[in-house]
Amino acid sequence: MTTPATLSLTPRTTLVLLPTSVLPLIDSSLVNVLLPTISRDLGVTESSAQLGVSAYMPAATAGIVLSTTCLRRFGTRHVWTGTALVFALASALVGLSGTLPLFVTARVLQGAACGFIMPAVQQIAADLVGRDGMRSALATIGLPAVIAPAFGPLLGGVLVDAVGWRILFLVNVPLAALALILARGVLPTTPGRRTPLGHGQALPGVLGMVGLLWVVSAVGTLPAGFTVLIAAAAIVVIAVFCVADLRSTTPLLDMSLYRGLPFATVMLLCLVIGAVSYGTLLSTSLHIQSDLGQPAWVAGILLGMQGCGAWASRSLVKGPWKNMDAFPVIAAGLVVAAVGTLGIQAVGSWNAVTVAVAVVASLIRGLGWGRARCSPCPPPTRSCLTARLRQSERTPG
């Protein structure tokens, strides 16, 4: 039985959906600060432990590509419940891992669950609030994207010396269990549909996107010719996926949306913003801990300052700047973020002056990043909830 759509998410529904949105994003930013500690504990180099970061994103990408098929086939409630359980299990395995292979495998499982969770949360929100309530729901479930970079590194940096890195992953288990308990009788029950699984689209999509992400993470460690060859092959396979998805009556990612230039442009900017923001989280953490020899809590505080700057920018974007054109706001945000990044990387020693420089630069980068990340999108790009409503409306039931 499907719950009738209301105009906004209830407090209890929000309490159920937010943990499964927040926890994966906190973990993805948390591990950047914990990486030196994890590598020491596992007895491996930082570059080896970084596989836990590199493998997470391709797994999440694969989960996103496959999520639409699973949502159609099994229903949103079942997919959300299953992925919440898998994420809790993977978090427990990360926290209990004693070897690098187990750590990397658990991170892959975490990433795959993360890829399924957000589409499931978005579809549940669309089912609950309907078209008229999508904008409010989007603002609510999009909040983790701003919170996670602020609190993930800060919590990790401050708490790692007090409780150890393992507890910071194991705590996901009771939180996920609480969300599952509260979800009873709250989430809509949408029956699965006997629709095509879309193997012909999913296989090239997963191979191409995972291959491209692997190439990006392996730049500098492989021969240039081999890197270019794999990148070219990945792009060709992604093109095959796009053509197959456009021709399919049951598209996986609804590639037809990218025919609109404003939507395609903003999505490209989102890709750049995501790469810049999450890439700098890792580089800053390693710079502070490895190059400057400071403890994890120092890196956590600086990244927390960056999150505070992003939060301040979000208030401006949702307030005085809400009617401004998104494109110049995003461009200005990227420039400001670049200035802040240069300021942090320019810190080559640790004293009173350079500490002040690092703090100010972190705030500046956060202001730029938040300005770019939270900018108001033009009407054709009002996010994945619109796409998912369109998708569910035209899928035969």
Rank of each mutant, 00 (worst) to 15 (best):
L159D: 02
L30R: 05
L334Q: 08
G75R: 01
G309Q: 05
G133L: 00
V359C: 13
P223G: 06
V243A: 13
G304I: 03
T20H: 07
G279T: 07
D245E: 13
G211V: 06
W214Q: 04
P101K: 06
D245T: 13
G198W: 06
L178Q: 08
R135A: 10
C242Q: 11
A145L: 14
F226H: 01
I230T: 10
V129W: 03
T6Q: 10
S248R: 06
L302A: 03
V339K: 01
L334A: 12
S91T: 13
L25Y: 07
A332N: 11
T189W: 06
A387N: 09
G211L: 02
A358D: 08
L102V: 15
A264F: 11
M118P: 03
R194I: 12
S217C: 01
T6N: 00
I117F: 12
V240I: 14
N32I: 04
L30M: 15
D41L: 05
F241K: 09
A312H: 02
T45H: 14
A337I: 10
G293Q: 08
W321M: 11
L292P: 06
A148G: 11
L292Y: 04
L203R: 02
T10Q: 00
D132L: 00
L207C: 11
V329P: 01
V335N: 02
G192L: 12
A62E: 02
V171R: 06
S383A: 10
Y278F: 15
A145F: 07
A232H: 01
V210F: 02
P379S: 06
L316A: 09
T37Y: 04
A239I: 04
Q122P: 00
L342K: 03
A332F: 02
V228N: 01
T341S: 12
D245W: 05
L363N: 03
I167N: 04
T341L: 08
M1K: 12
L7V: 04
A125R: 01
T6R: 10
Y56V: 13
S277Q: 10
L302D: 03
T99M: 13
I147N: 02
T83C: 15
M255D: 05
V53M: 14
S28P: 00
L23G: 05
L246A: 14
F327W: 11
L303S: 05
R77V: 08
I273H: 07
L389M: 13
A326W: 12
L168R: 12
I301W: 06
P24H: 10
L182F: 09
G348H: 14
W165V: 06
Y258I: 09
A239V: 04
A231D: 08
A275S: 13
R131P: 06
A59M: 08
R388C: 07
E393N: 11
Q110N: 12
G98S: 09
P379W: 06
A372M: 12
L25S: 08
G52S: 14
V243Q: 12
R166Q: 13
G260T: 13
R259G: 07
Q294L: 15
G200V: 03
A299W: 02
T14P: 00
V215I: 09
L138P: 05
P328I: 12
T6M: 00
R194T: 15
V236L: 14
V359W: 11
A179C: 11
G279C: 12
W311V: 01
W297R: 07
I141Q: 05
T280V: 07
L178I: 15
A232E: 01
S28D: 03
P196S: 13
P119M: 05
T105L: 15
A162D: 11
L93P: 10
R371H: 03
P4S: 00
G115D: 05
T6E: 05
A106W: 03
A120P: 03
